[in-house]
Design a protein around this nucleic acid. Sequence first.
DNA 1: TTTTCAATGCGTTAATATGACACAATGTAA
DNA 2: TTACATTGTGTCATATTAACGCATTGAAAA
Lengths: 256, 256
Amino acid sequence: MTFEKEIRDHYLHGHEKYLRHISVDCVIFGFHNNELKVLLLKARYAGRWALPGGFILKDEHMDLAAQRILKHRTGLDEIYLRQFHAFSDPGRSTKKINQQFLKNVGMKNEKSWMFERFITIGYSALVDFTKVTPVPDTISDACEWFSLNGVPEMILDHRYILDEALQNLRLQLNFHPVGFNLLPKKFTMPELQKLYETILDKKLDRRNFQRKITATGILKRLNETRKGVAHKAPFYYKFVMREYEKALRAGMGFDL
Amino acid sequence: MTFEKEIRDHYLHGHEKYLRHISVDCVIFGFHNNELKVLLLKARYAGRWALPGGFILKDEHMDLAAQRILKHRTGLDEIYLRQFHAFSDPGRSTKKINQQFLKNVGMKNEKSWMFERFITIGYSALVDFTKVTPVPDTISDACEWFSLNGVPEMILDHRYILDEALQNLRLQLNFHPVGFNLLPKKFTMPELQKLYETILDKKLDRRNFQRKITATGILKRLNETRKGVAHKAPFYYKFVMREYEKALRAGMGFDL
DNA sequence: TTTTCAATGCGTTAATATGACACAATGTAA
DNA sequence: TTACATTGTGTCATATTAACGCATTGAAAA
């Protein structure tokens, strides 16, 4: 099927496959070079950037839809993924955006479910940056990581959704150690601290940070240090899932 | 319009007015006699209890839809109301539930948007019990308050939604003073403490509780005491909205 | 009227957690 | 071999919290 035909089919018959009026948008966070990043798509139909999103199959759990979308974009499975808010402004519609695009794919004035109003459920994903190979889909020119202070203009309310996700992440970080999902399996204490400093946007005392984090018991120090740095080699740590879950149930609350 | 005709019309033409596949369900909490209560409807079509819910008008913000539903049930406006989760199990459908009911209103085997799968957005509402007069609607036999440990069997996943709302409320209470929304304008310190003890389900030290709560600065003590109790009369307090909002912005975090 | 008594308002103290900082140790590069 | 940036560990003053004491109050009982 050609690209044009595929798009036409999606616009004209997608509603036979997907639920109407509902979409899922993922804010995919990563951490690299001491910066928090988000993964964005450049949507062909708008010529602007957008959150990776999609629709829910008629017989699919929404969480699975989000997982599916994530898998397509990042190749990753089994990662931290969580809905954080539903966005329901009555004006949420791509009707105006894609007129020119539609002409290009041979759509005239046909009606389409895609022009209707959409309520979107925002999902927040935390991934290991080093494990991701961004994959654009058929209706996207590009798929790239952006630093949070270099985010381009985005379609619709996607910038707002992104900001809400970030705010939510900051809140979460105060009582769930979600930050680990953004790091590789092995990481050093300074790396973990940088992550927290970046997300919370404030400096933390190195020694007090270490004391508090280790006190939670969710870290295990490995008998291995990072080589190749021009100073004392830091230990690697790993994250002990079992203790983490125990801490979660007990209602961990650690201020930093 | 007769009741039967109204229902038929809703089943056959409701989708011209409302968004398909999406509903809103409200978990309305109140506090009375030292117990946390929820407001439930007895749905005629199921003969069982359900959360007060409804649908979203095609051009209506979802939050407004939730407000509208709440207003109908409680008569209240401008109360604490907040979405907390979207429930999206593919099996969420009332198709099986209401066969007998449909026969009674003269529906045979017509198709209806109401039989399709629904994703529902859960809203949590905190209201002043003393201000509410429960109002059943046309498709409900009754509208009543239930104590949390006396909740009857409910349709679909409504019990699960209720439990999630409660869990969410407990979390909220740890860093937002949302409890005030459950009390009358004037309340005593022991009342406030009972509220916290009930929701958090643990005993709190009376003196430490008072110290911490007053330290937040969101309370103002009135020059007025509760009369008619067989012991020392407690002071009334009121809740200072201005200070509350200031505390929220600053990121209040008070452990109890 | 007087006494009783449960509940309230206010205060004290010891244990614990937190923030701020000192210093020795380490591994690469000069 | 030395310099140096950075890490691991420890200390101490201060703030916060938990646990508890005691006098006060006002309706009910005597």
